[in-house]
């Protein structure tokens, strides 16, 4: 008698992955804690995380949105202005370090960076460079908007039962003077690159885990009931400045994130890991879940991931109604600009 003899099929590669009895993977995720329909779920992270918020909403779950668009903004522009993508309007939060920065700013406003970028008389937020495609009117407007987002992050921490975070990168750009972390390299989305001020840091396992712990500790201090659900974006990196090939750099990035998410979840009963990355990325799967660019996840890939998510929650038999008419067209437009 040995410990393997009593294990379920799912514990074995052959029976769980290569030749599952039902013809497909099952019980890939057994949630550590319940997520019921009434539980408020906040979402943040890289672009893949946008799919999760939408899926939660379409299943009638309580997707927490703490930063809503002003009534004056047409619905067709909500996505372009970064509303409705995540719980709040931070834009993508690719790294644990950037999450920790937003949490710190939300809970201690005096720590918030005051940097603003100006281009051709328009003003942009270095920490949310894509929230206003045409920029803001003034420095004051940028800072006021950033404070609104920080308020929304704070509200989310206060109100969320589950904080679902999907990191996607380890490389991040940092201001060498202020030490603040940008979501994108200055000069790419907005701003101007200055080699004296802007430096890339490739966060490793320990520093990434430390940042994640800093963020979650601060959240728990503010809301002792909050739980964290981690998942890693399966979307490979766009580019690397490490000098490595994009393939090996991406493998490093995802390996670090997957390991630290697993380690962090294993260490706490209040943190769980959902395997988005694991479900989509393996090369030995029957089909590719990536688009032709071999980077973004196809709609069928997103559906596949979310199917496992809802199966894990015991909701696999529910389906969302097909919307009709104007709503379909409006949704199509939102979807289009959401992926722009």
């Amino acid at each position: 008698m040995n410990p393997y003899e009593k294990l379920d099929d799912r514990a074995f590669w052959k029976l769980g992955v290569a030749e599952p009895k039902q013809g497909e993977l099952t019980q890939v995720w057994l949630p550590k804690f319940k997520i019921e329909k009434q539980h408020a779920v906040a979402t943040a992270g890289s672009c893949f995380a946008q799919n999760i918020g939408r899926a939660l909403r379409s299943r009638g779950m309580n997707w927490l949105v703490t930063e809503k668009p002003p009534q004056s903004l047409p619905r067709s522009l909500h996505t372009a202005h970064n509303y409705g993508l995540f719980t709040f309007r931070t834009g993508n939060i690719y790294t644990p370090a950037l999450l920790a920065q937003w949490v710190r700013w939300a809970l201690d406003r005096s720590s918030m960076d005051q940097e603003v970028w100006e281009t051709d008389g328009r003003f942009f937020d270095p920490f949310r460079p894509s929230v206003r495609p045409n920029g803001f009117e003034s420095v004051e407007e940028v800072l006021a908007s950033r404070h609104i987002t920080a308020d929304a992050v704070k509200t989310a921490i206060e109100q969320a039962d589950i904080f679902l975070f999907t990191p996607g990168l380890t490389e991040a750009w940092v201001n060498t003077k202020s030490k603040s972390i940008y979501p994108a390299c200055p000069g790419t989305v907005q701003g101007t690159f200055n080699p004296d001020e802007h430096q890339c840091i490739n966060f490793g396992f320990e520093s990434g885990k430390k940042a994640l712990a800093s963020a979650f500790d601060a959240m728990q201090n503010h809301n002792p009931n909050i739980k964290m659900l981690l998942t890693v974006s399966p979307v490979p990196i766009t580019a690397t400045v490490t000098g490595h090939h994009a393939l090996t750099a991406s493998t490093y990035t995802k390996s670090v994130l997957r390991a630290l998410a697993g380690e962090f979840a294993n260490a706490s009963e209040h943190v769980d890991y959902f395997p988005s990355y694991d479900l989509v990325s393996p090369a030995m799967l029957d089909q590719s879940y990536f688009n032709e660019n071999k980077r973004t996840v196809s709609p069928s890939g997103v559906d596949y991931v979310m199917k496992h998510f809802f199966e894990g929650l015991g909701q696999e038999k529910q389906s969302s109604p097909v919307p009709m008419g104007d709503i379909v067209c409006e949704d199509e437009i939102l979807e289009y600009y959401g992926k722009a």
Binding site: S76, N291, E292, N293, D326, C329, E330, E332, I333, Y336, Y337, K339, A340
Partner: peptide
């Protein structure tokens, strides 16, 4: 066009109605 890697600009400006 995005999936094909074609450089273009634009998209929907309103629903068909």
């Amino acid at each position: 066009a995005r999936e094909r890697g074609i450089e273009f600009g634009g998209g929907p400006i309103a629903s068909g109605k």
